[in-house]
């Protein structure tokens, strides 16, 4: 079953062509290869990667090696996605589950931000965020439908 509609596929292709200057690495952590959410996330990237002209690179991780890497990236659930820039630097953005529905747009925007190495936040917002001197964890719960 296709994860992307024809319109989503067209939109992703256009966004990637215009706004994805550098490769982005996606670490894909999974525990159960047959879980529906694992299959959905894998199928999603099977469709997204060819639309990115090879700029989105997915590395699947599971088993003991995957668990060790997951701990390093503070990933406690699976399936999970971790976004890294071209140089392997952690963008500190994780997705738990397959980002479908509304979350697909969030994923596409985050991939673009990581590729560009810059967010779309206003200058005052960036200054305010950069001034934060406490450890912060932000969790945004949503639903794919």
């Amino acid at each position: 079953m296709a994860m992307l509609s024809a319109a989503q596929r067209r939109q992703a292709k256009e966004l990637f062509a215009e706004h994805l200057p550098a490769p982005v690495q996606v670490l894909f952590f999974y525990a159960d290869a047959y879980a529906p959410s694992t299959a959905a996330a894998r199928a999603l990237f099977d469709e997204l990667v060819p639309l990115s002209d090879g700029k989105i690179r997915v590395k699947a991780m599971t088993g003991p090696e995957g668990r060790a890497e997951a701990a390093r990236y503070r990933v406690e659930q699976a399936p999970a996605l971790v976004l890294l820039d071209e140089g392997g630097r952690d963008a500190r953005i994780r997705f738990y589950g397959a980002p479908l529905g509304y979350e697909l747009m969030v994923l596409l925007e985050d991939l673009i931000d990581v590729s560009r190495g810059a967010t779309r936040l206003s200058a005052p917002a960036r200054a305010l965020i950069r001034a934060i001197d406490a450890d912060v964890v932000i969790r945004v719960f949503s639903s794919p439908t």
């Binding site: 959410s37 503070r74 659930q77 963008a91 500190r92 953005i93 994780r94 997705f95 738990y96 589950g97 397959a98 980002p99 979350e103 969030v106 994923l107 985050d110 931000d113 990581v114 810059a118 967010t119 779309r120 936040l121 960036r126 965020i129 950069r130 934060i132 001197d133 406490a134 450890d135 912060v136 964890v137 932000i138 969790r139 945004v140 719960f141 949503s142 639903s143 794919p144």
Partner: peptide, 16 residues
């Protein structure tokens, strides 16, 4: 997005 601006911030998007 905030997480990219400050290394002390970690962001999770969770399928509830």
């Amino acid at each position: 997005m905030a997480a990219m601006e400050n290394p002390r911030i970690l962001a999770y998007a969770v399928d509830a």
